[in-house]
């Protein structure tokens, strides 16, 4: 009985889990942790339409039970003759149990991921795995357009693009810059350099690319931990002797721990 029940309700229950998660993320302003804010409206509208259909399915269910059961092959019914010609078709009681167990596992896993775990951003592990700044030269942004811009509103992305495309120390001379990002250690000089890092998202977290401004602060690991959010201000100077390949680094006047911003990704 339970077996059939799970198989019967699997789709509707999974849909409901996805809908509750989407709507809750939207209501708590956290949908942008997973998808670009520009597409939120679509996710919300479809979730609400889905919700109506899910509730309707609960109210109107029995319509197709007989077909459904038959095509699940766990019960003799009008459609079973098809399976009899097909030796690969699952038909025994055992396979029905396995299928129900799999379905239950998927439901439990989905609830765990979407309903129990607190929403989170990608971590410094993803930043390291995707190589910070490996793609700044081709972000859809032009360094020359940035050069004349108002640097006070620059994000980590803007600075990373500038540093990546015009490593000309003169431009940075005498400028103090402010940054907010999370800490991730430099792969080639982890003792003295870390990156103030953000992820750039074009569509959803899947395509997030890490960008960062390298900070020169020997012994930084005693004061900060990877994944901690910090604000940093200081000047960009030529590499003062770090083994990092970065030609220009930020020497900080001030760094302090801060809260994760409401929009942890940049676009």
């Amino acid at each position: 009985m339970l077996r059939r029940l799970i198989a019967r309700w699997q789709g509707i229950v999974l849909a409901l889990i996805g809908i509750v998660a989407t709507v809750w993320l939207a209501l708590t302003d956290q949908l942008s942790l997973y998808i670009h804010p520009g597409t939120s409206w679509f996710a919300i509208v479809m979730a609400l339409i889905g919700a109506v259909l899910v509730i309707a399915a609960f109210a109107l269910t029995p319509l197709e039970d007989d077909h459904q059961v038959a095509s699940d092959a766990s019960q003799p019914g009008p459609a079973v003759h098809l399976h009899e010609h097909d030796p690969t078709a699952p038909r025994s009681v055992g396979s029905g149990t396995i299928r129900a167990a799999l379905a239950a596992a998927i439901i439990v896993g989905a609830s765990l991921a979407l309903l129990v775990l607190p929403p989170a951003t990608l971590t410094s592990a993803a930043a390291a795995q995707r190589s910070i700044n490996s793609e700044t030269s081709t972000l859809d942004q032009d360094a020359t357009a940035l050069v004349g811009g108002d640097t006070s509103s620059f994000t980590v992305k803007d600075w990373a693009v500038l540093l990546g495309q015009s490593p000309d120390a003169d431009f940075f001379a005498g400028r103090s810059i402010d940054l907010v990002g999370f800490v991730s250690s430099s792969p080639d000089d982890p003792d003295n350099v870390f990156y103030v890092t953000r992820f750039v998202v074009t569509h959803c977290a899947i395509d997030a690319q890490p960008v960062g401004v390298p900070v020169y602060l020997p012994g930084w690991a005693e004061r900060f931990e990877p994944d901690q959010w910090v604000t940093a201000s200081g000047a960009i100077v030529p590499n003062p002797g770090s083994s990092s390949a970065e030609p220009l680094l930020l020497t900080p006047d001030e760094i302090s721990v801060t809260d994760q911003p409401e929009q942890p990704y940049v676009y």
Partner: peptide, 10 residues
């Protein structure tokens, strides 16, 4: 989890 959830939500 973040990446998998992102695919589902998207």
């Amino acid at each position: 989890f973040t990446l998998s959830i992102s695919v589902v939500i998207e």
